[in-house]
Amino acid sequence: MRAPATRRRAERTGRVAEEEAARWLERQGWSILARRRRTPLGEIDLIARRGPLVAFVEVKYRASAAGLAEAIDEYRLRRVAAAAEAVAHDYLRPGDDMRVDVILLAPDTAPTHIVNAWQP
């Protein structure tokens, strides 16, 4: 288990990364519908809409670009997908599509947007 100071620092870093990802998505034409949406099945970092598409977004930050390759795995994606299914009714309108995306962030590196990262 992480020490309290380490955990607080990681929490702060995560919030900053989520804010950066939200601003990046907004520049791409997305509207942010929710941040840090908690569900009984897990937390969704960002929920965003662009037209008839709602994306449930997992944000991952690493201290170096080299660490981004291992930042996301099937287990985490499955949890985000399950959480998205649990709350989709709160965000989807008739005719909308939904997907799970990932945004990877590291210093001095452009954001990497993995579109439709979860395909069961």
Rank of each mutant, 00 (worst) to 15 (best):
D96S: 09
E70G: 14
D90T: 01
E70W: 07
E85I: 05
S31C: 02
A17Q: 02
A5Y: 14
I47N: 05
I72D: 04
R76P: 00
E20M: 12
G14K: 04
A22K: 04
L77E: 10
G29L: 12
A34H: 07
M1K: 09
D90N: 03
L68Q: 07
V102E: 02
R12K: 10
Y91G: 08
S31T: 08
R62A: 15
L25V: 10
A88T: 09
A5G: 11
R38H: 11
W30S: 02
A106Q: 01
L33F: 13
P120K: 15
A21N: 04
P120I: 07
D108L: 14
S64G: 08
R49T: 03
W118T: 11
W118R: 02
A34F: 03
Y91A: 12
D101W: 13
V54H: 05
M1L: 12
R38T: 04
S31R: 05
R36N: 14
F56Q: 02
A84P: 02
D101E: 06
I44C: 00
D96C: 14
R76E: 15
A63P: 00
A55F: 07
A21T: 05
R15N: 10
A66K: 14
A82F: 09
A48W: 05
R2I: 06
P111V: 08
R76H: 10
T6N: 09
A83Y: 11
A65H: 13
K60A: 14
V115W: 13
